[in-house]
Design a protein around this nucleic acid. Structure first.
Lengths: 147, 147
DNA sequence: CTGGTTGCAAAATTTTTGCACACTC
DNA sequence: GAGTGTGCAAAAATTTTGCAACCAG
């Protein structure tokens, strides 16, 4: 849990730096999102927080705010629901298991991303600000349990 | 337009190979999606096809089908709408302009993706099936016109 | 012919908004 | 204290579904 804890602290620090206030419910929502460790929908967060009197609207408002600040990544699954995952601190290499939906981030330093950025900029004329590498396939556990 | 034409042909071939029938409206929707050249929402496609008697439901059904077959990529923008972009034929390196929203695909062969896959598999235990590299920043035109 | 596909309109979901109150700064 | 964030419930928007007619194979 250390990794998500530090990401959580970084997120709240960013909010603070942008002049946003952070009350109890906001912290609860952000903590739940970071604790989930995988793409999560607003409704899933809301259900997980039942009994703590957090409104669904606040979940949406918080997620949208984080997304606008670039702290969280949005994804469209089937079924018309949007799900969210915090950007790991500095690591933009994500692996998604096509079977169980687990998302894992690995350290970007194992990949020559600087070369990638240079090559992509040369080929396109873009000024690249962020690079995200998405890999999908079967995680070790799902591959082992395959029929 | 040659590039999107061939991608369009590949898409219809895939549908055919999977046993799906393709009627006039279906072709119209798929052609419009490929012609757009950027992430497009169901409603945008529908509006662009006004007068050709294509129903919004068919747009949704077609997009969902393509997404399930892995021929199209889903994205969640702000505002709760899902938008779609065809996967280029074999090229999984996409650049998105954060200002104008243009999406451009560059050839994957300029990047050492084989090394990336090997490194990521070793680090994670995943059996990687697809790799998508997303870069975001300013395209050349937007960078030039910057205030 | 057979069975998947479509348009239309209704239904179900998801997301946003208005407002009084609580709480942070 | 001043002003932002919140919960609740209503409203808006997005997406799905039912059904008869249509069309591809």
């Amino acid at each position: 849990m250390h990794r998500s804890d530090s990401a959580l602290v970084a997120t709240t620090a960013q909010l603070h730096a942008h002049g946003y206030r952070l009350t109890g419910p906001g912290r609860t929502i952000i903590a739940a999102l970071h604790g989930a460790g995988r793409y999560t929908t607003a409704r899933q967060l809301y259900e997980g927080l039942r009994g703590r009197s957090v409104g669904l609207a606040s979940v949406y408002r918080t997620l949208e705010l984080l997304a606008d600040l670039g702290l969280v990544r949005r994804r469209a699954e089937g079924g018309g629901e949007t799900s969210y995952l915090p950007y790991g601190a500095g690591s933009q290499v994500q692996l998604t298991c096509t079977r169980c939906g687990q998302v894992r981030a690995i350290n970007a330093s194992i990949c020559p991303t600087a070369d990638l950025i240079a090559a992509a900029e040369a080929a396109s004329g873009f000024a690249i600000e962020r690079l995200v590498l998405d890999c999908s396939g079967l995680c070790a556990a799902c591959a082992a349990g395959e029929a």
